[in-house]
Design a protein around this nucleic acid. Sequence first.
DNA 1: GATGAATGAGGGTTCATTCAT
DNA 2: TATGAATGAACCCTCATTCAT
Lengths: 210, 210, 210, 210
Amino acid sequence: MTTETPVSRAARKKQELRREIVETAFDCFAERGYHATGIADIAARLGIGHGTFYRYFQNKRDIVDHVITDLVEKVVAALAADNAPDAVNSLAEYRRQSARIGDALARIFGGDPRMARFLLLEAAGIDAEMRERVLDFYETAAELTAGYLHHGVRLGYLHEDLDVDSTARAINGMILASILSELRDPSPERQAAMSRAVRRVMYDGIAAPS
Amino acid sequence: MTTETPVSRAARKKQELRREIVETAFDCFAERGYHATGIADIAARLGIGHGTFYRYFQNKRDIVDHVITDLVEKVVAALAADNAPDAVNSLAEYRRQSARIGDALARIFGGDPRMARFLLLEAAGIDAEMRERVLDFYETAAELTAGYLHHGVRLGYLHEDLDVDSTARAINGMILASILSELRDPSPERQAAMSRAVRRVMYDGIAAPS
Amino acid sequence: MTTETPVSRAARKKQELRREIVETAFDCFAERGYHATGIADIAARLGIGHGTFYRYFQNKRDIVDHVITDLVEKVVAALAADNAPDAVNSLAEYRRQSARIGDALARIFGGDPRMARFLLLEAAGIDAEMRERVLDFYETAAELTAGYLHHGVRLGYLHEDLDVDSTARAINGMILASILSELRDPSPERQAAMSRAVRRVMYDGIAAPS
Amino acid sequence: MTTETPVSRAARKKQELRREIVETAFDCFAERGYHATGIADIAARLGIGHGTFYRYFQNKRDIVDHVITDLVEKVVAALAADNAPDAVNSLAEYRRQSARIGDALARIFGGDPRMARFLLLEAAGIDAEMRERVLDFYETAAELTAGYLHHGVRLGYLHEDLDVDSTARAINGMILASILSELRDPSPERQAAMSRAVRRVMYDGIAAPS
DNA sequence: GATGAATGAGGGTTCATTCAT
DNA sequence: TATGAATGAACCCTCATTCAT
């Protein structure tokens, strides 16, 4: 028997449209690029007047900020789910966890190549501020990864003298390379191969056993 | 006593201006971004009429292609110099070679952060075609790196069952991360730390010795 | 024990809001100008929905007409009060009366410089129709002044061959100049000086006694 | 045998178009008002592309500033011509001079009623800055008139205790009234009557000889 | 009656490109 | 060959007005 006041219903509808605009804007930006997309394109695809757009977002620059926020949140949420750094007690468990994380990333970025294209390739070219946001994102990701490494060092299953911060960046670089490679060859085989290679390098390096 | 016909002198001058335009275009693109840069800006900075620009390049899109070509060539040239894959015969030599390559990259990208900013962050956002060119560049770089790995596998100082292609991408990802991290913190210390971390992961991985 | 039907009470409230809208519209127009003021600004300042505005006035153009009507009425009312043209019987009395009228004008326009700004400077620029209304206002004022002059001529304390109509306009021009000068320098001293100068020119002219 | 370099010819043509744009802008503003006039209207009437407009003026606000400057200059030039304040030595000469000035004003404003309409009625409503410019113009005019009065006081043909500054404003107010009255009734008779009335008030006042 | 969400006409402005000189 | 004046497509954004709730 959940009743709803007319006011809250209207508010909900407003939120819904807001979300739809963000999603449609992402669609447009991903398809034709930020600069080639007009506000009118977004509005037309949604079937709303383009003046309506401006009731929900300040201007074109505003919407792309929200699109990016959305994407970053999705990525971070997917990574954080069931993957607490301190839920791991051994190298074997860490291997399993990193495989899970790799799967999650594959699911997110593999499921919609437009995400990687826009977040990792397009966005930084929008303007200087957005470039910094993208670099911020990399920074955040590095801190996340560093958390895992730190835990491993403390528990002794990772090199005790690991430069946690720099190594985290290096590992994230490999993950980035995976995602980028997927843009060219989205086949599951290639993805599996990349994933294996990354983990192999990550844990054991490339040097042959002496 | 090398003389030059007036014709060839004029041709040389034309080539010179062409090059100057490419360089100045890069300056502008790197400073304000591709979309925020007008043809008039480039021409004004060069002190030429902006109509003249169109005598050297088809259109705005044309010039950025040449700028990218220029940058890619510079990077590839710097990497190839004195670093033939088959000049190495042992892991120790490879370590030294990869250190040299790292230094070369640091010199190129560290010397002018605009290069990394434009080639790695801005360019892919220009349009779909340019995005593919950037991905091509990554691909070429992967092939380059794969050459080194292949040689190492053949000579036995790298894991014999290495997935050369995927591993090359992974390693390049770490290099990419190095360069990106430099954009945020260009201090030599951070760069040295990143370089060390990359090579450590690359050769030995992060796992503690069992 | 005056009772009021609900109907008339509602009607009275409507009239009250109507008046408030006109006043608030004047506030906005005077502060930011007609063109820079949006209906939403007026409504927001009143704390009503901007749709409500259209239940009281046809459109934006409609409200400014009412604002002007309001202002003109205020000015005319202030001038007419206790200043009947035929209440005067001599030059001395006319001098006193014109001083009183000057004071009344000073009170109205000096009390709120926005009135002069809007009615005398802004309004005529709104559109052709409003320009004519402003000129109508000047015309009405000229007729008013002419009434006083006519009376003076008839009673003999003003030049018998006075071109009443044209002279009325000329005098009103001096008054207009007074009000405009107040916009730049609202000090009482300047106003008093202007008032004295106007009356001196008006009665005696500037020529030195021969 | 005046030859002209191609450069200077082009420069002259540019100046010419610049002037034409100012004139056409004035035409449009005077006919339909500043706010109702679009840049496209001005360009279309001139038969040029509307982008061309922006090669000559920064923006819409810029052009109206030039239009006003133009008008003010025309008025000031017409007033200053052959009417130096110190060229007068007696009241009779001053009367003749002020008649000449009146004629000059009549020629300027009477010749093109749009000038008065735009400068005196429209302009001040454009925005706060323009309003101040119009008030500046009145101020300048007051100083001009004050110069004449000052001279008359010094030579003794005007009241020795004249408040020169305030009186100048008052007189200018009468002139303003003349010009405004012309907008409603442009007949030469009315203008002549106004002119006579102004001068009569100015020199002798309205009071009957005691 | 009151509201404010939706609308789209309209206008200012930019800038890549052309072409006559 | 170099130039820069001219052009107009394109686009962002505002805001008066309507109308369903």
